[in-house]
């Protein structure tokens, strides 16, 4: 998705267990990226468990980036567990993931 060049996108890796305590740090990271106007790729390949609070942050992030225009937030390489959780919770569309 980010084809333009080196500095336009940063990435953050979600931990294997993204539970309640990860929601705060994740939010900060998203806000930071949003503030700097740089796109952010959330690497969800390592996720084995993700909690709803983290997903709340991601969905809110999606909306926020879209509103700000320009740089985008995207989720890359979602693991099976991530997809499964998002699917069961009916959040695939909100997270802009294809089924």
């Amino acid at each position: 998705m980010q084809e333009t060049g080196e500095n336009v996108s940063e990435s953050v890796i979600l931990p294997a267990v993204a539970d309640l305590t990860e929601a705060g740090p994740l939010k900060q990271r998203l806000e930071q990226a949003l503030g700097s106007g740089i796109g952010l790729t959330v690497d969800a390949s390592a996720v084995q468990r993700i909690s709803s609070p983290c997903l709340q942050v991601l969905v809110a992030g999606m909306t926020a980036f879209a509103k700000a225009g320009g740089a985008a937030l995207s989720i890359s390489n979602p693991s099976e567990a991530f997809r499964e959780t998002a699917t069961v919770l009916g959040l695939m569309n909100a997270l802009e993931l294809s089924k």
Binding site: A23, E31, A60, G90, A94
Partner: peptide, 24 residues
């Protein structure tokens, strides 16, 4: 069949990480 209700989700800046916003 699951539908997520995202209507209560606030702006990212106003979001309290440990609060519950989603309902289903």
């Amino acid at each position: 069949e699951v539908t997520a209700d995202l209507s209560k989700l606030p702006e990212l800046s106003a979001l309290e990480p440990e609060q519950a916003y989603f309902s289903w």
